[in-house]
Design a binder for these strands. Structure first.
Lengths: 193, 193
DNA sequence: CGCCGAGTTGAACTGAATCAAGAAACGTGG
DNA sequence: CCACGTTTCTTGATTCAGTTCAACTCGGCG
């Protein structure tokens, strides 16, 4: 159950087996079936979550009922609403399993314990968040400056398997267009390339 | 010269005077005049930089010659291209002073030293980057889902003084519209509100 | 078998970009 | 202190990318 987390952590920092064994005691394993929710908007996000297996999405729903996807959480990634987790305020995000998933949850008290007791984990999370920030900044700049087609091409390049694993309308709400527009883009790209 | 940094660090973590005194030895103070560049695209970002005083912008220029602003760096903020700084690859960003500024630069070796020698700084940067990630995610979701007018209103709410300090066309390239569109938006908002 | 969600396609519409021109504000040098 | 060019901002006309609304197809599943 902890294989992927162990692998990911070891790729980033050096820790002893004892330290990782200690970390293991702080996580709660959880299986989540497809279409089930890890978090619904209005709730407080009580956990930050590592995806051992499966696929999730975190998204908001606007006043017109449209969904906007912040993130797909695949194997080896973390999901959760950081702001709600840290402040205890209600979340505006929903987190839903797109495939049957195996998760490792950690509560805020346990997380704080982990950071205090094992400084290497402080570094692990710093680097993790750092990489996430870089990726999010890239996506933001792309969203500001590129056309729908460019954003779609970039997504396919960054996550080649995503279009097989998730429905097209979710890809549309990730890149910030309607499903109709994405559909037209795809047919153009097939005929024109 | 280190007042603001000291204040900001103390707001986030607890460190001893010796630790901060040590940190001070690792920074290089630098004054940067208005319109001068701290980083130009194509260069490697050699420093991550704290703004003691003044105002900077980091931005890219696309193939059509349009500017896209990632960030305004004001007093108490950090600026730099994290990706280039960490990997040593050429940066795509430009960083320019919008006002005469006083900066504290730290090189990668010094930064690593700081993180290794003073674990509290590892935490400081983790929290700093965490907050930055939350803000960037918010801005991304806003860019995906909101209209130009909503994004402009949000900017004014988040940074009330920005529209006095920077030219309108830069605000336009921050929210991802042309200066003409922003100009029309502003005249609408004045007449209609 | 019938229904429902997912995807496609068409037509009309709209928010924002582009192109173009002029007005106002600014800094710099004489 | 004024004259100059430069940058910034505005306004209008036109174009275009992407939305909206609507109808239809396809595949899966109860």
């Amino acid at each position: 159950m902890f294989e992927i987390l162990h692998k990911k952590v070891n790729e980033t920092i050096t820790i002893t087996d004892e330290e990782f064994a200690y970390a293991k005691t702080l996580f709660v394993p959880k299986k989540l079936r497809k279409k089930r929710f890890l978090l619904e908007d209005g709730e407080v996000c009580m956990y930050t979550t590592f995806v051992e297996k499966g696929l999730l999405r975190s998204f908001t729903i606007d006043d017109k009922g449209n969904e906007h996807i912040l993130q797909f959480g695949m194997q080896g990634w973390w999901v959760g609403d950081l702001y709600s987790f840290l402040t205890g305020e209600a979340s505006e995000y929903n987190i839903e399993a797109l495939e049957d998933s195996e998760l490792l949850l950690i509560t805020k008290p346990s997380w704080n314990l982990l950071l205090d007791e094992v400084p290497a984990f402080e570094r692990y999370f710093r680097i993790l968040i750092q990489n996430n920030l870089i990726a999010t900044q890239r996506r933001l700049m792309c969203t500001i400056s590129a056309t729908a087609e460019e954003r779609y091409s970039k997504l396919l390049k960054d996550f080649p398997d995503i279009s097989q694993r998730v429905p097209q309308h979710m890809i549309a709400s990730y890149i910030g267009v309607t499903r109709e527009t994405l559909s037209r883009l795809r047919s153009q790209m097939i005929s024109g390339n």
